[in-house]
Design a binder for these strands. Structure first.
Lengths: 339, 339
DNA sequence: TTATGGAATGAAAGCGATTACATCATGCGG
DNA sequence: CCGCATGATGTAATCGCTTTCATTCCATAA
């Protein structure tokens, strides 16, 4: 471990004051060329590494952004996360990442950590009702904060999202238009998660709009992972009167469901139609390729990061709320029901 | 924005000294109950939030760990990342995540950032030859550093990995044992990435060990993404004399390749066997389920985090190097070649 | 030659904590 | 009733940098 270098030390070695060293780094234009060069030279010779932590404290600002995400295990969140990180990196911000694993306590702990670390801004992937209080505290603290992946009614919070309800309704409408009347729904924990609840609403509204009754047996709520999709599909198709189409409100669930059909000897879409939601990369590589609702997850991340950093830099707490579009991607997993 | 609270301010309001407030937070046992309670009460009333940045500077330590990863877009890295983050969180460490996107400049920039931020430790997912110098600087700086996903010859660096060469050789051996003689290889950028190079070596050694010649036409190097796997497989199977089995050295490539077979009307494994590497969750959900080499990515992450934090806490720079086992997971995508 | 004003540099007060050390009560044994 | 060990609290230096303000330097114009 080399003797630790500080600006003070560099200053001494270069025969200048501490302030001059700081200037050599941040505003070299203020220094006469020879002075600057001497300082830089000494820094290089002694492998001086700037201490950003000290700098941030002194400057009373920070260049890290806190990001919570349910789990980067789900490729769809991995995509927005990557976009955020990419954009942040370009602007010299770092990302502290926290996976909530859908656990409110974990999330609360992460947010508390962000507050204590005095992050410059926060992006929440999804809004969980359970910690309204902390979120309010964040807003109150003045730290710019953005929720992504959903639209919020709450006026105090900004977001970059899309209309989950409308998207789910559109997909359900599509299945109905194909002629389906019994449409199953495999969906994440909608009682706890805003965006999932919206999707459920969309499904319900679509049925209702076409005078179809909502059969509770056709709705399965579980965790958004492959295995649960498979299991749910198994149950759905074992029903005395199975659905002719199934809408899985997340591609992970859909891909799991697809596997179940294979295991049961069912053909998609001949025996049952299957639709997903998200359009993760794998969706196009399934067999058959999955019809799904494309969510602009890369754009969400990119826009969110851009907007957040702008807010940070201008210091303007103005409302920023963006809704992006989703696209129904028709591939081969849906068709009209058999006659 | 509430008037910002500092320990000093709390001290004043509680009628005690700054030091007492600090103690109320970190070593409450040192205070008399009434004193402690008064302080805690004042903190609660004024919503005081501890400033970890200042604390870290003063204490000359930090509780953040820097983590670089090629891209969390690849589920296999997402898994180890998640495990690391989970473990770190338990111990009160935060993770600064950086995606290198396989770009040496990006990686260098990230590492420089870690150094400047005085992170407590660093985990590198993979070792790229291109920035040996920075890595040396890290080691020299005394910051505990760990490479994951590979084994290193370099004595200066610790790792938690597995034997990429042996794993690739085992898979190739398996295909040979099934009776294949023309075995294609679809593999990531092995000229630049250590672990990928090892896999290539394993493939080559297996062929060699069985007296089979390495046909360069059968080896395709590309980026480890679905689309490139698809494209590569298309090329391989269009060869005048196509392989009877293909080893894709990453599941992403394998799943892409699987799609290509569907599009070409080829059946797996009847017309061609296909093997992957990693065992991402999706591998078991493919059609047919993918035979692949399971890499203990969750364990790697968990162990790496544990080891790193231990090193941080003890301050012992002792060598820590762990190799975990891989498992050949036989599913339905490989079979003997047709007679 | 002497003001004069801008450019270059230095001095020093923070930023918000931690912590070694000093101080001041207490309660106990003698 | 005194001395002293112990426990509770306060004092103040420090961490490494930023930044305001003051100072010095020098070239230019009068």
């Amino acid at each position: 471990m080399p003797h630790k270098m500080t600006m003070q030390e560099i200053a001494r070695l270069a025969g200048v004051s501490l302030a001059t060293v700081s200037r050599a780094i941040h505003s070299p234009g203020l220094l006469r060329a020879p002075t600057r060069q001497r300082v830089l030279q000494v820094m290089a010779e002694h492998r001086y590494v700037y201490n950003a932590a000290a700098g941030d404290l002194s400057r009373q600002r920070s260049t890290v952004i806190g990001l919570t995400v349910p789990t980067t295990q789900n490729p769809i969140f991995a995509t927005s996360t990557l976009a955020i990180e990419e954009r942040a990196q370009e602007k010299g911000f770092s990302i502290i990442l926290g996976n909530t694993r859908y656990n409110p306590d974990t999330e609360r702990q992460l947010l508390q950590g962000f507050l204590e670390r005095r992050v410059a801004g926060i992006i929440l992937t999804g809004y969980a009702f359970q910690q309204e209080d902390i979120v309010r505290e964040i807003v109150a603290s003045g730290i710019p904060c953005l929720v992504i992946w959903e639209q919020l009614a709450d006026d105090a919070l900004d977001y970059v999202g899309f209309d989950n309800r409308e998207a789910a309704r559109a997909m359900t409408d599509y299945l109905i238009a194909l002629g389906h009347r019994r449409i199953g729904l495999i969906i994440g924990p909608y009682s706890r998660i805003g965006r999932v609840q919206k999707r459920f609403d969309g499904y319900r509204q679509a049925l209702q709009g076409h005078g179809l009754a909502l059969d509770p047996d056709l709705v399965i709520e579980n965790a958004p992972v492959l295995e649960d999709g498979r299991e749910a599909m198994g149950r759905l198709m074992s029903l005395p009167e199975p659905p002719t189409a199934v809408f899985a409100a997340s591609d992970l669930l859909a891909i799991g469901a697809l596997r179940a059909t294979k295991e049961m000897g069912l053909r998609v879409p001949q025996d049952v139609s299957l639709a997903g939601f998200d359009d993760i990369d794998f969706a196009a590589y399934c067999d058959p390729p999955l019809t799904t609702m494309r969510v602009p997850s890369h754009d969400i991340g990119q826009l969110a990061a851009t907007v957040l950093m702008e807010t940070i830099e201008t210091g303007q707490p103005q409302r920023r709320r963006y809704s992006l579009n989703t696209d129904l991607i028709m591939r081969a997993s849906c068709a009209a029901p058999r006659a």
